[in-house]
Design a protein around this nucleic acid. Sequence first.
DNA 1: CGTAACATTGATTTCTGTCAATCCGAGTGG
DNA 2: CCACTCGGATTGACAGAAATCAATGTTACG
Lengths: 239, 239
Amino acid sequence: MLTDKFLIKRRRNRLSAEAIGALEDALEDVRVLPARQTLTCEDETVQASTYLIDGFMCRYVDGRKGQRQLVAIHVAGDFVDLQSYPLERIDHAVTSLTDATIASIRHDTLIGLMHRHPELVRLLWFSTMLDAAISREWIFRLGNLPALGRVAHFFCETATRLSIIDVGNEEVYPLPLTQADIAGACGLTPEHFNRVLRQLREADIMQFADGVLHLRQPEQAKVIGHFDPGYLYIDDVID
Amino acid sequence: MLTDKFLIKRRRNRLSAEAIGALEDALEDVRVLPARQTLTCEDETVQASTYLIDGFMCRYVDGRKGQRQLVAIHVAGDFVDLQSYPLERIDHAVTSLTDATIASIRHDTLIGLMHRHPELVRLLWFSTMLDAAISREWIFRLGNLPALGRVAHFFCETATRLSIIDVGNEEVYPLPLTQADIAGACGLTPEHFNRVLRQLREADIMQFADGVLHLRQPEQAKVIGHFDPGYLYIDDVID
DNA sequence: CGTAACATTGATTTCTGTCAATCCGAGTGG
DNA sequence: CCACTCGGATTGACAGAAATCAATGTTACG
């Protein structure tokens, strides 16, 4: 089922079979977006949102020089830009990081859908709020942690988010992104990010190579990154 | 009208008089929260949200040492923690920065309200999404701008947000916060923030003293802070 | 008058960005 | 099969930015 990963797994959002079916039916135009393809640009008005079925995507704003600042990374099961429904316009760019299987859901379809199935309002709103909670944590990461902590925090967060959708586990997970991508999420230059990686590797805390992350000492990583998964609301995930 | 500032001013969210009246009626327990009083702590489950009628509040997470990282600052007309309705739990602390006049709206009241006035769903969701858009911009500020830019950006953003609710103007506005508060929003130590302020003052770009901010060269400030108000969605504000 | 909170400044250390170079593996065309 | 190229990864040297530590100033207020 397309919406398995995100929708069904959150306990509080248990929905009627009809509501789920209706949402699934509303997803249209399933397709594969090649890696590093921009879906939406800043300031565009959009009439549809995107559901990410497989792969990695991100949202970013261009900063000084070429360096882009990522504001979100999305994994399978995320709505990538659902906020564009209430906002009607998008204030940042949306891009695929890997080949990405996506589906669209038109905003006028959404309106009808929520009218017929009011429970969906709560679910979709929750989805956008989870996104906002992650944004807040990114603010904390960037504003309060030194480079080592930021990187550790990022990898811990990603471990948790992926484990929710049954990708990898506490010790190892696939992450087919470049160092520059992740550096952009951590607000670091690629060079310095690379140095931090080495530091973490030499301390045998974690290792990132060939698109795979190994957490050698998950607990230690959490301490360094001040990581507490409360903001991911995993207490609501059905196992 | 209590909800004047936020609710009425956004064009796209034009609502029926009944809906507005109903929302107003749902606000209860109007009171003054003294400065620096914590309203909600991290991890609390909440059954009501807060509407800020007057004053300044913030949301923050505690970081390393005593330094708190602000994740949001709120001005009159903001819902301070509306996200706690879909999330049911709060992942950060909520505090007043000045004396703050606030009102509560119970979540079960909200449910009934939105059931009777479905237009309100869009309005309230929009409100939380505006908050998220500001969070994203804070990520950009912290991840991509040097100290000088962060400070300039913060003061530009605040100028715009306050001007929407008719407080101050492009050149001068009241901001009764301490330097440590704002430093916490910019991810800087108070000492360094102070130095940056001096730098901006000596360049005659802006001045912050006695709770008042003077923008001597607004355009220059916007350049330094890479500030573009698109993310505040002011195109939707009725003048 | 004394105290406390906030603001300011200086000296120093630490961290991070910048610039420049090299390395490496995958694909490509001769 | 072998240069060749290119995107990413890695390393080094250095400059610049920001945190830290320590003190002093300033103001409001009991």
